[in-house]
Design a protein around this nucleic acid. Structure first.
Lengths: 264, 264
DNA sequence: GTTGACCTTGCCGCAGCGTCAACGTCTCTA
DNA sequence: TAGAGACGTTGACGCTGCGGCAAGGTCAAC
């Protein structure tokens, strides 16, 4: 047999056969004078064994072990391990399919993409916004949905304000947006900060969710704080750093006010 | 933020971030004077979106499509397709796990490796043999188990001789083995051929399983036949080509005898 | 000044082949 | 007898999603 016939017999490509030669799974056979490989039935038998094993899901390296470890004994180990691995894969796929199914049943695929069900609910209660501060907060929440640790995540969903309260602060957000190009010393800043501080739900303060953000390190006017940076601080700092100066100043003042109040 | 902070925030490696840059999934940000990349919160948001999508099982290319196709609409298609793909994978894994389970419950892992249950049964009814013609036939059967089409495979299992009959021909196989180094013209050949032909179960002849092997093309003494080679002929030819001369001659004579008999 | 923790680009490696490329060999047919 | 077409040969690159290493440059702290 030449390589093409062997390959056809075993139902693989010639490329595959040569690949197995290079990996040492299939011994290189004799050559004819013209350089063509000549195969006997043994090669087909070995090739079929390799295929049976790979079709079960063994890697070629594992197949190599199984063939080398002279028949048997070790094979059972390999297969057992393989089964465990496949079980893990199956679980992973099922989990992703479940998430997918949940996503696909949602009436509208959220513009912020596949967030968790809880976060999707939270986002849907927030006023919609394509631009401005509200849009940024929506993005931040989407980011937190995947990047925050489970504790932060849980607190976030538990202390989420209800729709009624959110409706009330919508005007305040518009005022914030108006400060996009303003100076940090803008006269509108202090008043807005106070009204915003008043609007923060008390249960959010009590939850401790804001504690890291309230730490003094965030209150200094410097460009970058140097705090040891737990995860929540990291998010808070990144958020602040991303804001226009006047808006950042508002947020800082809000934080200062809240820190004062929670201290008393 | 520098790249390390961004990566930590999103829970990926810096290598991953740079990889996404090269793929165009994440836009290259501004650089500081020293060449360091500087990121804002937007990058973290995008990065988180990429992660959410990849964790669902989308390829990075698909993520790219989803991000490029400006929000939404197309995403549902991609996800639906992905779900179908995952379903296929899940089925594949289940099937392999079922086969694995079947294999692992077998008391002894067969030396010829994971053959199908039917073939395992057939092989277990054949006399064991480490070498010689019987060993070759066992190998051939293992080969046919994976390489033969479903029709051939079914015929093979249906017409398999029972244990009693196999016991009777065991002696004949030993005689065949004795011819391993003999001349094709050896005086023992014709008699052995006749006794072997007598031993072939009539239902195997009737099944048509042997028909291709009985065709005249196989009877000419030439080195290689040139028949159009259906699958069964291919196996038969390979098997014959692999035998020592005297044994091949016996087989040819058996075939000729059977052809005569089935013709009358 | 020297660690040590960052950052930069760039290239190799992984699994399992598919897919050229550039070439030789064989057989059949016009 | 020449040419077409179907084979064979080696070799190298491509794909996925990064990890790892090399060979540096930068920056803050001791």
């Amino acid at each position: 047999m030449r390589i093409g016939e062997l390959a056809a017999l075993a139902g693989v490509s010639t490329r595959t056969v040569r690949h197995y030669h290079r990996l040492g799974l299939l011994p290189e056979p004799e050559r004819r004078a013209n350089g063509y490989r000549v195969y006997g039935l043994r090669a087909a038998v070995t090739l079929a064994r390799i295929r049976r094993l790979t079709e079960l899901g063994l890697s070629l390296a594992e197949v190599g072990d199984a063939l080398a470890d002279d028949r048997g004994r070790d094979l059972r180990e390999i297969l057992t391990e393989l089964d465990a691995d496949l079980a893990r894969q199956e679980q992973g796929i099922r989990l992703r399919r479940a998430r997918l199914a949940e996503l696909l049943t949602r009436d509208s695929l959220h513009p912020d993409d596949p967030v968790s069900p809880g976060m999707a609910g939270l986002l849907s209660r927030l006023p919609q916004a394509e631009t401005g501060m509200l849009a940024r907060e929506r993005e931040l929440l989407a980011l937190l949905d995947t990047a925050a640790g489970p504790d932060t995540h849980r607190l976030l969903l538990e202390t989420a304000p209800d729709a009624g309260r959110m409706g009330k602060v919508e005007d305040l957000y518009r005022e914030l947006d108006a400060l996009a190009d303003a100076d940090p010393g803008d006269p509108r800043v202090p008043g807005l900060a106070e009204r915003l501080a008043d609007a923060v739900p008390p249960e959010m303060l009590r939850s401790g969710l804001l504690d890291p953000a309230l730490r003094p390190a965030d209150a200094d006017g410097g460009a970058d704080g140097e705090a040891p940076a737990g995860e929540q601080e990291a998010f808070a700092r990144a958020f602040l750093a991303d804001l226009p100066p006047a808006q950042a100043e508002v947020v800082r003042q809000v934080m200062a006010l809240l820190a004062d109040r929670s201290a008393t």
